[in-house]
Design a binder for these strands. Structure first.
Length: 353
DNA sequence: ATGATTTGACCCAC
DNA sequence: GTGGGTCAAATCAT
C-alpha cells in the first residue's frame, strides 16, 4: 500500500555498495555542477544538480544511520497519508494524553496503558521543517492539506519562541485525533519545525474549509482555514514536503523527506502576479518529473502513500538534534516510484528499487 | 450566532 | 518540583 521499500529493505540490500554508489553519484553530480557553474546553463539545471548532490548524500547518510540501527526498519509512509501507515511492529499511539481520553478509546495507546509501561513519548510522530521565505515578498505557511485548530500555546524552556498546539478541526466530527505542534526554530526564525502526532482519520480534501489567510502571522500560528486552488495545492504540498521527518519514538525511527520549492508558498499570495510566478517556478522545477508527484495534493489520502523519498533513520536521541540546514533547502524531491522518473531525472535510485 | 484563537489553569510524566 | 501537553472559559473574528 504505497510503501516504496520492502519491510526487509535493510536486510535485502547491499548497503555498503549503495552508500558508495550514492557518494559516487553525488561526487559526479558535483563535478557536473562545477563544470556548468559559470556557464549559460539554466538555473533549474544547476538546482537539479545541487539537489541531486544533496539527495545522494542524504541517502548515503540514511543508509549509514540505518546500518547502525540494528536493521530496524523505519516507517516508510510519510505523513500526508497517516491512515496508511503501516507499523505493525511498533505500537501506534495516537493520543497519549490522559486528559484527552474522551475519544481515544478507539486507539491502541489506550490499551497500552493497561498492558504495560506507557511512556508519553511512545507515539508516532512526524517532523516537518518548513522554511518561510520573504526573499520575494512572499510568506510561507505551514499548511499541509489538513484543517487544524489551535488549542494551546506554550513557552518552551530554552526556546526563544512559543510552541503552538493544534488538533484536527474534525476531531469531534470524525474522531480524528491527529495533532501537530508548530514551533519556530531558535537558529532560524524563518524555519518552523512541525511535529505531527497521531494519524488523520478524516479526509482532508473533504473536510477542508474555505477561508483565505489574512496575514502571514496567521500562518505562523497555524491558520487552519484555507482552501488552496488546485495549483496552489502543489505548492502547499511542496511546503509540507519541504522537510519531512517521520519518527516513531517508541521504535526510535525517523524518516526524513526532503523537498522544497525555493520560496514556494502561498501564505500571503494575494496578487496574481506573484501567484503566476510561483506557478511558473513550480512548473520549471517539476518539469520532467512525476506527474503523480506534482499533482496529488488535493487527494490527501494518496499523495504520501507513494513517496518515501529521502529517509533518515535516527535514534530518539537524535530527535532533538534535527538540523535544518541539511534538509530545508532542498529544491527538489524525487518520485518514489522509479517508473515515474523521467529520463531527465538525475538521481540514481538503483538502491531503492 | 458561530467558529477560531488566546491564555491561564490543570494534569501528569519525568 | 518542573516542564510539556491539554482543557476550557474568555475573547476575537467573521
Amino acid at each position: 500500500m504505497g510503501l516504496c521499500l520492502p519491510v526487509n529493505f535493510i536486510e535485502d540490500m547491499d548497503t555498503s555498495a549503495c552508500i558508495i554508489n550514492e557518494i559516487t553519484n553525488g561526487m559526479e553530480l558535483a563535478k557536473q555542477l562545477k563544470s556548468i557553474l559559470g556557464s549559460e546553463s539554466s538555473l533549474g539545471t544547476k538546482q537539479v544538480l545541487i539537489q541531486g548532490i544533496i539527495s545522494s548524500y542524504d541517502r548515503a547518510m540514511m543508509m549509514v544511520n540505518w546500518g547502525h540501527s540494528g536493521g530496524q526498519t523505519p516507517p516508510l509512509t510519510p505523513p500526508l497519508a497517516p491512515p496508511m501507515l503501516s507499523q505493525p511492529e511498533s505500537p501506534v499511539s495516537v493520543d497519549e494524553s490522559p486528559r484527552s481520553g474522551d475519544f481515544n478509546q478507539n486507539f491502541d495507546d489506550h490499551q497500552d496503558k493497561k498492558v504495560g509501561s506507557k511512556k508519553r513519548k511512545a507515539i508516532t510522530t512526524w517532523r516537518n521543517q518548513i522554511r518561510i521565505s520573504t526573499d520575494n515578498g512572499l510568506e510561507g505557511n505551514t499548511d499541509d492539506g489538513y484543517s487544524w485548530r489551535k488549542y494551546g500555546q506554550k513557552d518552551i524552556l530554552g526556546a526563544k519562541f512559543p510552541r503552538s498546539y493544534y488538533r484536527c478541526t474534525y476531531r469531534y466530527i470524525h474522531q480524528c485525533m491527529a495533532r501537530k505542534q508548530v514551533q519556530r526554530t531558535d537558529e532560524d526564525p524563518m524555519v518552523f519545525e512541525i511535529t505531527y502526532r497521531g494519524q488523520h482519520t478524516c479526509n482532508p480534501t473533504a473536510t477542508k474549509s474555505v477561508a483565505p489567510p489574512k496575514s502571514p502571522e496567521k500562518y505562523e500560528t497555524g491558520q487552519t482555514n484555507h482552501q488552496p486552488l488546485p495549483q496552489k495545492s502543489g505548492e502547499m504540498l511542496s511546503n509540507f514536503r519541504e522537510n519531512l521527518k517521520v519518527s516513531t519514538s517508541d521504535s526510535d525511527a525517523m524518516v526524513s523527506n526532503s523537498f522544497a520549492f525555493p520560496s514556494a508558498s502561498f501564505g500571503s499570495i494575494e496578487n496574481d502576479q506573484q501567484f503566476d510566478f510561483l506557478n511558473e517556478l513550480n512548473y520549471d522545477f517539476l518539469q520532467g518529473y512525476s506527474p503523480s508527484f506534482v499533482s496529488p495534493a488535493t487527494s490527501g489520502s494518496n499523495y504520501f502513500t507513494e513517496c518515501g523519498n529521502d529517509f533518515q533513520h535516527h535514534d530518539d536521541s537524535h530527535l532533538s538534534g534535527i538540523t535544518t540546514a541539511s534538509t530545508t533547502n532542498s529544491p527538489l524531491a524525487f518520485p518514489a516510484d522509479s517508473q515515474d522518473l523521467s529520463p531527465n531525472f538525475p538521481f540514481n535510485l538503483g538502491c531503492f528499487i
